[in-house]
């Protein structure tokens, strides 16, 4: 069975629950972008070129609060830095020595937490040489599917009943916090999540335009140095 078979197996992954959760989160993002007066074409452009919800939220946060571009870049970069260790963890299990780098660069554009968790959990059932095809099948389908749903939702989001919009907006924090907690590998990851929650309101109060950057740097540093001081979370 070749790559095409496993690509299609990846495509069939679209029927799983995390896909629904991410898509609903992105529908929530569409409503948020609509509220922030960001046009449909810009919203689609953000989703397809960035393809990482936390980065997208930092970006929109910066676009609406008139933050200088350098601070937005710094915030987005800090939110996205997790992709480096994520890719370093998963790539040795799916690349083979003959895969050209540009192919990896294209496929890894679709690397985000949902596809990472989905693929990593299933690699033991996929032959090593077909894992790249399997991952690409899933992550590409996920991107196309959720972008279509998101774009449709953007156009009708003013007609949603308020209770539905509130429910949607609430999926993002709960889905991402639980997903990140679940995919955390060591205590430092979990400790950093807790520090982020505690520090966010403090820095929002004292330094609203650079609060996220400070929360990341200070909370992350604290988690790094205290990671051996607490028992397993």
């Amino acid at each position: 069975m070749g790559n095409w078979h496993w690509f299609k197996q990846g495509v069939r992954g679209i029927l799983h629950l995390p896909v629904l959760m991410l898509t609903l989160s992105l529908v929530g993002f569409a409503a948020l972008a609509h509220d922030a007066d960001i046009s449909l074409s810009q919203t689609i452009f953000i989703q397809v070129t960035v393809w990482a919800l936390p980065s997208m939220l930092v970006l929109v946060d910066g676009m609406t609060s008139n933050t200088p571009i350098t601070v937005v870049i710094l915030g987005v970069a800090l939110a996205a830095v997790r992709f480096m260790p994520m890719i370093m963890a998963i790539l040795p299990e799916m690349r083979n020595p003959k895969t050209p780098t540009w192919v990896l660069m294209v496929i890894c554009h679709f690397m985000a937490i949902t596809a990472w968790v989905f693929a990593f959990a299933r690699f033991d059932k996929v032959p090593r040489e077909n894992r790249l095809a399997f991952f690409f099948g899933f992550s590409l389908t996920l991107c196309i599917f959720s972008t279509i749903i998101m774009a449709l939702a953007y156009q009708v989001s003013t007609n949603f009943p308020p209770v539905f919009l509130v429910g949607l907006a609430f999926i993002i924090p709960v889905y991402f916090s639980t997903m990140l907690w679940k995919s955390a590998r060591i205590n430092a990851d979990r400790l950093a999540l807790i520090f982020g929650v505690i520090l966010a309101p403090i820095f929002y109060y004292f330094a609203p335009s650079i609060d996220l950057v400070l929360v990341g740097l200070i909370g992350g540093t604290a988690a790094f140095f205290l990671r051996h001081k607490v028992k397993r979370l």
């Binding site: 930092v58 915030g75 800090l78 260790p85 430092a188 990851d189 966010a200 996220l212 988690a223």
Partner: peptide, 12 residues
């Protein structure tokens, strides 16, 4: 990874 996790938790 700690910095990224703290920032995203702050965002959420």
């Amino acid at each position: 990874r700690s910095v990224a996790n703290a920032l995203i938790a702050g965002l959420l």
